[in-house]
Write a protein that binds this DNA or RNA. Sequence first.
DNA 1: TTTTGTGCAAACGTTTTGCAATTAT
DNA 2: ATAATTGCAAAACGTTTGCACAAAA
Lengths: 148, 148
Amino acid sequence: MSTKEYPSVLRKTGLRATPQRMAIWDYLVASEEHPSATDIYSRLKPKFPSLSLATVYNTLDVLVGMGLVNALGSLGDDRVHFDANLEPHINLVCRVCHKVVDTDASCVDDLEQELRQKTGFQVEGSRILYFGTCPDCQTRSNNYKRRE
Amino acid sequence: MSTKEYPSVLRKTGLRATPQRMAIWDYLVASEEHPSATDIYSRLKPKFPSLSLATVYNTLDVLVGMGLVNALGSLGDDRVHFDANLEPHINLVCRVCHKVVDTDASCVDDLEQELRQKTGFQVEGSRILYFGTCPDCQTRSNNYKRRE
DNA sequence: TTTTGTGCAAACGTTTTGCAATTAT
DNA sequence: ATAATTGCAAAACGTTTGCACAAAA
């Protein structure tokens, strides 16, 4: 989806295309970092000096409610992180540097269907997290404290 | 692992086998409910009238640190839930009644290896959550508000 | 003009912390 | 005995809420 389409997508459901909303959504789509509310706040504050944290939370609620972004939940810290990549995929979380890498696996698509059949659940979303040590941090050191 | 082994497992790492710790661990292993800290607290309070919430949090930290239980993170509410089932498995979370059902899928075992090869991550743990509507709640009603 | 959204400050609930009293070893 | 653990109260933290003002439609 292009930046230009944001206003119409929002208005389609009676919501207003405010600069704050556009900026937050935009940042989320552009970012590969699965930011938290405070991440977004501090990143956007310079450009929107009047921006308030409450607005960030409000906007994230709106975007999640519209299905435009997913809430990943906590990733080891105690904040909810957000992901604008709506495709089913895997988040690899490094326990050392807390970096998150997205990846796919051949079976992810099959998994959902298997669950549906096996359990009768009407599956609506997923959050597949793997925790470990990323290649960079493996090189840097092998002694680290387990956290989480 | 049998209840009788708890003390020695704890002492092996210099930790004390207090009644509170045993009870919390015990409950976690017996329970199928992925309880949160406050769940555990209210469940155990009757048997340990002096029990404090801080001790529950301390103990959970200890157990997670020793790798005896996993922290699942928030499951739609805003509390961290815990799971003593250490085998890689899938948690199916019902968005309506918040019940959590554990299940397996044939590809889960392969997934980890595929990730290792593809990304170079040293995988140490996973948290595979699926959100949806459980069979019971599908029957009860089809109109519910999306939450999370 | 009207309705929605913003921003502030205060409130909330979960989790953490400091410390004196208690208990396992 | 002595070092670890408990339990309390207070603090901290992320997040939510209420309301007056501002802005989009």
